[in-house]
Simulated assay, not measured.
Amino acid sequence: METDATAAVELRAVTKRYGSMVTALDAIDARFARATFTAVMGPSGSGKSTLLHCAAGLDRADGGEVTIDGTPLRGLSERALTRLRRSRVGFVFQAFNLIPALTAEQNVVLPLRFAGRRPEPGAVAAMLAEVGLTDRAGHRPSELSGGQQQRVAIARALVTRPAVLFADEPTGALDARSGAEVLRLLRAAVDRHRQTVVMVTHDPVAAAHADRVLFLADGRVVDDLTGPVGAEKIAVHTARLEEATR
């Protein structure tokens, strides 16, 4: 099977089932081009998080093919898959998932340590500066606000310069001001550093920061908006989709 060299991540006919009754992803085709920001939306249970987990190699698809940065995941051993995730994938979670005993700087260094890489001189400091936390490098998560913790998580996800950064409801636990700062950083990662970002969100305002909005329902892609799309148009699409799936 040929892969698309212009895609950071590609899914072809990807299926994921849980037990014999639940099909979370139903032969989904999706590609995420390099240096783009895609928001994934849909009703609860539509398959958004499952899509993210399969696309990131956190969960194995039952059928079809997932390719990250030109490498098909099918057939990779668990060790090889782990190495690929550590070097080519970044992940930002709603709950931050920082290590409480480590400082902000140590949390950012962690993916490099896991990948067996020595940080380049100044690289970690530069990442913390990028997210506006130079003066918080020595603080532990309990000493940081929620917005600051999520900015540390973004720095941690980007420090390896991954092929793709996946974000699962990254603003869900934040107030409006902190959420807007996180979205600004994700947008800047795409515009300044040619990063690829794929974000699951339920918030039309958050989705409006993306170049593209992919809508899921019942494990399938049912709509795909591209180009500058305002929050109001996204909200209308979301409401129609939720009404149709009731």
Rank of each mutant, 00 (worst) to 15 (best):
M1H: 13
E2P: 15
D4E: 14
T6L: 13
T6N: 14
L11V: 12
T15P: 06
K16L: 13
G19F: 07
S20P: 11
S20K: 14
V22N: 14
T23E: 15
D26T: 11
A27R: 15
D29T: 11
A30C: 14
R31Q: 13
R31P: 07
F32Y: 12
A33K: 08
A35F: 05
T36M: 03
T38H: 13
M41P: 05
G47Q: 08
G47Y: 10
T50D: 08
T50K: 08
C54F: 04
C54W: 05
A56W: 00
G63M: 06
E65W: 01
V66L: 00
V66F: 01
T67C: 10
G70P: 08
G70R: 07
P72A: 01
L73C: 01
L73R: 00
L73V: 00
R74C: 08
G75K: 01
G75Y: 00
S77R: 01
R79Y: 00
A80R: 04
L81I: 00
G90R: 06
F93T: 00
N97A: 13
I99P: 05
P100M: 00
A101T: 14
A101P: 00
A101K: 10
A104Q: 00
E105H: 13
Q106D: 15
Q106I: 03
Q106A: 15
V108Y: 02
L110W: 04
R113Y: 06
F114A: 14
F114K: 11
G116F: 02
G116P: 03
P119K: 01
P121V: 05
A123S: 15
A126K: 08
A129I: 02
G132M: 12
L133W: 00
D135Y: 08
R136F: 04
S142T: 12
S142L: 11
S145C: 09
S145D: 06
G147A: 06
G147Y: 02
Q149H: 01
V152K: 03
A153Y: 05
I154K: 10
A155N: 11
L158P: 09
L158T: 12
T160D: 07
T160E: 11
P162E: 05
P162L: 07
F166E: 03
F166Q: 03
A167D: 10
D175F: 09
A176M: 11
R177K: 14
S178V: 10
E181A: 15
V182F: 03
R184D: 13
L186N: 09
A188I: 11
A188G: 14
V190C: 03
H193D: 15
R194S: 15
V197W: 04
V198S: 06
V200Q: 05
P204L: 04
A206C: 09
A207W: 02
A208H: 06
D211E: 11
D211Y: 05
F215C: 03
L216I: 01
A217N: 11
G219D: 06
R220T: 13
V221Y: 05
V222E: 09
G227V: 07
V229R: 15
A231C: 08
K233A: 15
T238D: 14
A239G: 11
E243P: 07
A244W: 02
A244P: 06
